[in-house]
Simulated assay, not measured.
Amino acid sequence: MNKFSIASFLELTAQKDDKHSFFELEQPELLELNLKNQTVLAKNGSMVAYVGEVKFERRGMLSGGVGNFLKKALSGEGTTMMKATGSGRLYVADYGKKVRVLYLENESINVNGNDVLAHEEAIKSDIKMLKSIAGMMSGGLFQVNLSGTGHVAITTHGHPITLLVKPGEPVYTDPNATVAWSGNLTPQLKTDVTLKSLIGRGSGESIQMKFEGTGWVLVQPYEEVYSVSS
C-alpha cells in the first residue's frame, strides 16, 4: 500500500475503537468523551465533533448559585462551560493545546479557569479569588477549584513541568504560565519592583505567584494572554 494513499491516510488518522473509557485521549490534543446516558461539562466552544445522540446546553451566569454569580461577572467567566448530555462520542479540543486527564479521588485541585477543558458532572466547580489587586493586572486573580471524585481534563501549551513545593522552599511562578496547583495551596501575589521598572517584556515577571507549604504547581512553557468569553 502506498504510504501516501487515501487508504493509508485513513488508517493512520482513524478513531481508536479499542478504548472506551469515559475520558479517553484520542490524540494528545484531542479528548474523546464516551457518554452512556451521562452528563459532562466541557469548555464552551470546545466541541469539534460528536457521534450519537448528544444534546448541548450552555450554562448561564447563575449556574453554581448566586455566590458564584458575582465572581463570574467580575472575572468574565460566566457561560464558559457547556453541559453535554446523552449517549455517544464527543470530541473536544482547545486551540491545539495538550490535554491532560486527571482522576480525583475525593481530592481538589486549583486550575486557571482558561485551562479547564472538561470535567464530570459530579465534580464541584467553584471560582476562587486571590485577594490582591495585583492579580487583576496579571490575569491571575481568578481560578477554579475542582473537587470531588471523577475525571478532570485540563490543557497546557506544550509540555508542562510540575514543581514541588516544600516547607521553607517557596516556588515563584509567572501567573500567565501557571496552569494548576494542589488544592491545599493558596498562592500569594507579589510585585517585584525591580523587574517592574524594566523597560520591555515584564508582564508576568514583575507580578509573581508565591507558593508556600507542601504541594505542587504545574507551569507551562508559554505565557498565555487570557481572553474573556462571551
Results as ranks from 00 to 15, higher is better:
Gln27Cys: 04
Val111Cys: 13
Ser108Asn: 13
Ser203Arg: 13
Asn68Leu: 00
Ile127Asn: 01
Leu25Met: 13
Asn114Pro: 05
Leu70Cys: 05
Leu195Tyr: 06
Gly200Thr: 08
Gly150Leu: 07
Ala153Lys: 08
Thr186Arg: 09
Phe56Ile: 10
Leu30Lys: 13
Thr173Cys: 06
Val51Tyr: 13
Pro221Ile: 03
Lys72Ala: 02
Gly113Val: 14
Pro28Asn: 11
Met82His: 03
Glu24Leu: 06
Val101Glu: 10
Ile133Gln: 07
Gly65Gln: 03
Asn34Trp: 03
Gly183Leu: 08
Leu10Glu: 01
Thr149Ile: 04
Phe56Asn: 11
Thr155Gln: 10
Lys55Asp: 12
Thr194Tyr: 02
Asn34Arg: 15
Val92Thr: 11
Ser46Arg: 01
Asp174Tyr: 04
Leu189Lys: 00
Leu102Met: 12
Glu169Trp: 02
Leu10Tyr: 02
Leu195Glu: 10
Thr39Lys: 10
Thr149Ala: 01
Thr13Met: 12
Glu121Ala: 10
Pro28Phe: 00
Thr173Val: 09
Gln38Asn: 15
Pro28Arg: 12
Val111Ser: 08
Met137Thr: 11
Met137Ser: 13
Lys98Thr: 15
Gln188Asp: 14
Asn112His: 12
Gln27Asn: 08
Ser5Asp: 11
His157Leu: 05
Arg201Pro: 03
Lys166Leu: 14
Leu189Phe: 02
Val54Trp: 00
Met137Arg: 13
Tyr50Met: 12
Leu218Phe: 03
Lys16Met: 01
Asn112Trp: 02
Ala122His: 06
Thr79Asp: 00
Thr149Trp: 02
Val225Gly: 12
Ala14His: 15
Glu29Asn: 15
Tyr222Glu: 12
Leu164Trp: 01
Thr191Gln: 08
Glu11Met: 02
Ile154Asp: 05
Leu12Val: 03
Trp216Asp: 11
Glu32Gln: 15
Thr80Asp: 10
Asn112Ala: 15
Leu141Cys: 09
Asn2Gly: 11
Val66Met: 12
Gly183Trp: 00
Gly65Phe: 00
Gln220Pro: 14
Gln38Thr: 13
Ala118Lys: 09
Glu107Arg: 13
Thr191Tyr: 06
Val217Asn: 06
Phe9Asp: 10
Gly139Glu: 04
Lys128Ile: 01
His119Tyr: 07
Gln220Phe: 04
Ala93Phe: 03
Leu41Arg: 14
Asn145Met: 09
Val116Ala: 11
Leu90Cys: 04
Asn114His: 15
Glu120Ser: 13
Asn176Pro: 02
Thr85Arg: 02
Thr173Trp: 06
Ser138Tyr: 01
Gly215Arg: 07
Gly202Tyr: 01
His151Asn: 15
Phe22Leu: 09
Gly52Asn: 01
Leu62Gln: 05
Gly78Met: 14
Arg89Thr: 04
Gly113Thr: 14
Met1Gln: 08
Met47Gln: 07
Gln143Phe: 13
Gly204Ile: 04
Asn145His: 04
Leu62Pro: 05
Thr194Gln: 11
Tyr226His: 13
Asn184Lys: 05
Arg100Val: 14
Arg89Ser: 14
Thr79Gly: 00
Arg89Trp: 05
Leu62Asp: 10
Lys3Met: 03
Phe9His: 10
Leu31Gln: 12
Ala177Tyr: 01
Met81Arg: 04
Met129Gly: 00
Thr214Leu: 07
Val54Phe: 01
Gly64Asp: 07
Val228Ile: 14
Asp174Cys: 08
Asp17Phe: 05
Gly113Met: 08
Leu104Gln: 03
Phe142Asp: 08
Gly202Gln: 05
